[in-house]
Computed example of a mutant assay.
Amino acid sequence: MIEIESAFQREIESIDVFQDAVALLREHDIAVALCSSLASPYEVVMKVLLPELDFARTGVKHGCYV
């Protein structure tokens, strides 16, 4: 179990976004959204990487963030 948890932690730590791509999309008024069924540990990372997104949950099974 420790091996699985360690691999999962490495996966979480490897997440990154292309900030220049997000900036370019916004510069051209193209909305940025993230819809996902990811586990909450991923959500925590995305809140750090993309703090400008509204991370309020929608009323659906999977989270959608704009």
Results as ranks from 00 to 15, higher is better:
M1I: 13
M1C: 12
E3D: 06
E3F: 08
E3W: 04
I4C: 07
S6I: 12
S6W: 05
A7D: 10
A7S: 10
F8K: 09
F8W: 13
I12V: 11
I12E: 05
I12F: 06
E13Y: 08
E13H: 13
S14W: 01
V17R: 00
F18Q: 08
F18N: 15
Q19M: 03
Q19G: 00
Q19D: 03
D20N: 04
D20I: 00
A21Y: 03
A21S: 05
A21L: 09
V22D: 01
L24T: 02
R26D: 00
E27M: 03
A31D: 13
V32F: 10
A33C: 09
L34Q: 01
C35S: 14
S37I: 15
S37K: 15
L38F: 15
S40T: 12
P41E: 07
E43F: 09
V45R: 14
M46N: 05
K47I: 00
K47H: 02
V48N: 10
L49M: 08
L50P: 01
L50V: 02
L53V: 05
D54M: 13
A56E: 09
R57Y: 12
T58F: 09
V60Y: 13
G63N: 10
C64Y: 03
Y65L: 09
Y65D: 01
Y65K: 07
Y65C: 05
V66E: 11
V66A: 14
